[in-house]
């Protein structure tokens, strides 16, 4: 019985060693042949947005950082678009009906809603503006609001 097993194993080993991958050769009639080499580089980019900010009492204008395209490897004809979603009202923590109106503006006092960037280093400085009338009418308490920056890869305008 043992001899049978040894014989079978030996035969299997011989058969495995005889397996060979066939190789095929292509016959070229002569001359040159073009070979196409292709690769694809995925677009990459890094965008920084403003951090959490506290506005001082009675401050009419507060620095709110900047939206910046830090690094960019994007396709020609494409851009990185940043959109801002803000309610425009700081809400009282104890009573949501009590609010303080605010606007997020660029340095030239234009309301910021979105911007597109194509070159690394492109930036938009932002500020939070609250009028004196809004401060004077505000009730005591803590106020806050959350704004959302959405970044997308779009066709350049």
């Amino acid at each position: 019985m043992n001899k049978k097993y040894i014989a079978a194993a030996s035969a299997a080993a011989v058969m495995v060693s005889m397996i060979s991958v066939p190789a095929f050769a292509v016959d070229y009639p002569g001359g040159s042949q073009d070979t196409r080499i292709s690769t694809a580089i995925e677009p990459t980019y890094t965008v920084t947005i403003p951090a959490d900010t506290t506005v001082a009492f009675n401050a009419l204008s507060t620095d709110f950082g900047a939206v910046t395209l830090e690094s960019a490897q994007i396709d020609p004809g494409k851009a990185v678009k940043v959109e801002l979603d803000a309610s425009g009202s700081l809400k009282n923590a104890a009573d949501a009906d009590k609010t303080i109106a605010y606007t997020i503006n660029t340095a030239d006092n234009t309301a910021f809603t979105s911007a597109s960037y194509q070159t690394a280093g492109d930036t938009t400085a932002l500020k939070i503006d609250i009028t004196q009338e809004a401060w004077d009418a505000a009730f005591a308490g803590s106020y806050s609001d959350t704004v959302t920056f959405t970044v997308s890869y779009v066709d350049a305008e």
Binding site: T54, F57, S144, V151
Partner: peptide, 17 residues
């Protein structure tokens, strides 16, 4: 899609006195 969103909070304190 390739769309990303991040949030920032704006806070303020109005004194009581």
């Amino acid at each position: 899609l390739g769309v990303y969103a991040e949030s920032a909070t704006i806070a303020a304190q109005v004194p009581g006195t």
